[in-house]
Amino acid sequence: MSHVSKASLADSSQYESYSESYFDTLYRGNTDPWQYQTRWYEKRKRDMCLAVLPQSQYKNGIELGCGNGVLSELLARRCQALVSLDGNHQAVQLAKARLAELSHVKVIQGVIPVKLFSLKAALLEAYPLAENTPVMAAPFDLIVISEILYYLSPTDIDTVIAWIQQNLAIGGTLLCCHWRYAIEGFVMTGETVHKRLHHAFNLMANDKHQIAFNHQSQILDSDFLLDVWQRSQSSVARQENLI
């Protein structure tokens, strides 16, 4: 998601919990409210996200806040199995249509963070024959969170962080990307979200009982923040025995 159409659609009450009406308004009569498919800004950002992923292929990925599935379609090329999750019914229908021919991608509807704790049940409900497919396996070795966390309360963001800590596989990758500017009606911004992520993972690095999240990459674009963590000590060069 980007900044387009965000202003004036939210009110302060939506900061405390997910608002169906906010996203329903965006998708009403509009299959691409952030113009993912037409804006160079969005294509450039997607290309940068894909380029900084430290592995060429992942076994089992999940995208939180998939929208109409434009990024999911590209992530699917890098994943043997992919779960795409969004809270909005219209967005999910659009994503399902876009990804219909990709049998290794499962699209489900659910509000973050609540749905994260019942993913298997949600997948089985949406795809009854999926139980024995790789997409049912946890933890995930790729978690992508793009343009969604600033819509959540700080408490819900902390819940997502705790879920990541429990569900990112050893050696796995976490990618987070968010718009830097303020969004009318929402307290959190990309800046505050990424500070919160850095703080949480820095604390993990100091806990001998935790497997650290190592900061792999960071892009401080004028318009967005992009951070990648690896649950591994191996950089790309180390993975290929260059050092």
Results as ranks from 00 to 15, higher is better:
residue 39 R to C: 04
residue 34 W to A: 04
residue 205 A to M: 15
residue 144 V to A: 04
residue 188 M to T: 12
residue 163 W to H: 10
residue 69 G to S: 05
residue 75 L to G: 02
residue 231 R to H: 05
residue 241 N to T: 01
residue 3 H to P: 05
residue 237 A to D: 01
residue 114 V to T: 15
residue 153 S to I: 13
residue 147 E to W: 02
residue 28 R to E: 12
residue 94 L to N: 13
residue 192 T to F: 09
residue 65 G to H: 08
residue 38 T to E: 02
residue 83 V to N: 03
residue 21 S to H: 13
residue 53 L to W: 00
residue 236 V to H: 02
residue 225 L to G: 12
residue 143 I to G: 04
residue 101 E to A: 13
residue 153 S to F: 09
residue 201 F to L: 10
residue 50 L to F: 04
residue 236 V to K: 07
residue 178 H to Q: 11
residue 43 K to H: 12
residue 152 L to I: 09
residue 44 R to F: 00
residue 153 S to Q: 14
residue 214 N to T: 06
residue 233 Q to F: 06
residue 158 D to G: 11
residue 111 V to Q: 12
residue 211 I to L: 08
residue 181 Y to S: 13
residue 190 G to P: 07
residue 63 E to R: 03
residue 199 H to V: 05
residue 215 H to W: 06
residue 55 Q to W: 01
residue 65 G to I: 06
residue 221 D to S: 14
residue 215 H to K: 12
residue 211 I to E: 06
residue 86 D to I: 06
residue 104 H to D: 04
residue 92 V to A: 11
residue 239 Q to A: 00
residue 18 Y to H: 12
residue 218 Q to F: 06
residue 11 D to R: 14
residue 79 C to P: 01
residue 118 S to Y: 13
residue 16 E to H: 07
residue 107 V to G: 03
residue 148 I to D: 08
residue 161 I to Q: 09
residue 175 L to N: 07
residue 58 Y to M: 05
residue 25 T to E: 11
residue 86 D to S: 06
residue 201 F to R: 01
residue 26 L to G: 14
residue 63 E to F: 02
residue 184 E to H: 14
residue 199 H to N: 14
residue 145 I to R: 07
residue 1 M to Q: 12
residue 218 Q to G: 08
residue 183 I to A: 08
residue 135 V to D: 00
residue 82 L to N: 00
residue 177 C to T: 15
residue 62 I to T: 01
residue 148 I to P: 08
residue 75 L to R: 04
residue 113 P to D: 09
residue 196 R to F: 10
residue 38 T to D: 01
residue 175 L to P: 00
residue 118 S to R: 08
residue 201 F to A: 10
residue 116 L to Y: 07
residue 40 W to R: 15
residue 235 S to E: 06
residue 164 I to G: 07
residue 44 R to C: 01
residue 116 L to M: 11
residue 101 E to V: 03
residue 121 A to P: 05
residue 17 S to Y: 15
residue 210 Q to N: 05
residue 12 S to C: 09
residue 33 P to D: 02
residue 119 L to F: 05
residue 242 L to D: 02
residue 166 Q to D: 10
residue 147 E to D: 04
residue 155 T to Q: 07
residue 50 L to R: 02
residue 146 S to A: 10
residue 9 L to N: 14
residue 132 N to L: 07
residue 229 W to Y: 10
residue 141 D to F: 00
residue 64 L to P: 02
residue 118 S to H: 14
residue 172 G to I: 04
residue 43 K to D: 00
residue 31 T to N: 12
residue 74 L to E: 10
residue 159 T to Y: 03
residue 15 Y to C: 14
residue 228 V to Y: 02
residue 159 T to G: 08
residue 158 D to L: 04
residue 198 H to D: 14
residue 160 V to N: 12
residue 160 V to E: 11
residue 239 Q to R: 05
residue 34 W to T: 06
residue 214 N to E: 10
residue 194 H to V: 11
residue 172 G to Y: 03
residue 159 T to K: 09
residue 29 G to S: 09
residue 47 D to E: 12
residue 114 V to L: 14
residue 41 Y to L: 15
residue 145 I to L: 09
residue 227 D to C: 11
residue 132 N to F: 04
